[in-house]
Amino acid sequence: MSRIKKNYNDVIAFVIIIFSIIGNSVLSEFKFFADINYFFNLQYLLIYFFSFNRFKYLSLLTLFFLGLINDSLIGISLGISSVAYMTIYKIAIYQQNIKLRSIFISEWAACGLSIAVAYSFVLTIFFFQKVSFDYLQYFYNFLGSFVIYPLLWIILKYCFLKIEKFENE
């Protein structure tokens, strides 16, 4: 995917991330979508994917504010999601910069690492704040997120390539 994106792609990417944050309040009424949240973290995967592919509207400041919205919605201390999002963003950008050629395995491994670091941070804060959590649940969620990334990668690459093609035509 080229570094300079056309506007539609960037806007669509941004809307997808926002919807992954606020969409939970809409889709949680359906059992299937509510259960999906326990298997993988869509927000983290999307942030990693769009950061890695350098989408225009995804900056640290944007992620900071999106994190605040998420914290406010789910009721945890302000700033936790911001740090998690920004960590994922920074690892994705770093990985994107150091890669010599496009190898998906290294992108995938870095995605796993970024989610693991983000969850470790969140759970450390929860531990100090004495917020209850089930580490097994987070471990399964991490595994689910890691496993599902290639599938999400294929879907998003395919969709955005199609959009790009449509825009060029």
Partner: peptide, 18 residues
């Protein structure tokens, strides 16, 4: 530097909120 500043601000926010 700007990145560290945002991270630092987030940590301060977490601390103050807690």
């Amino acid at each position: 530097f700007r990145i560290y500043l945002i991270f630092l601000f987030s940590f301060v926010l977490i601390y103050l909120d807690f």
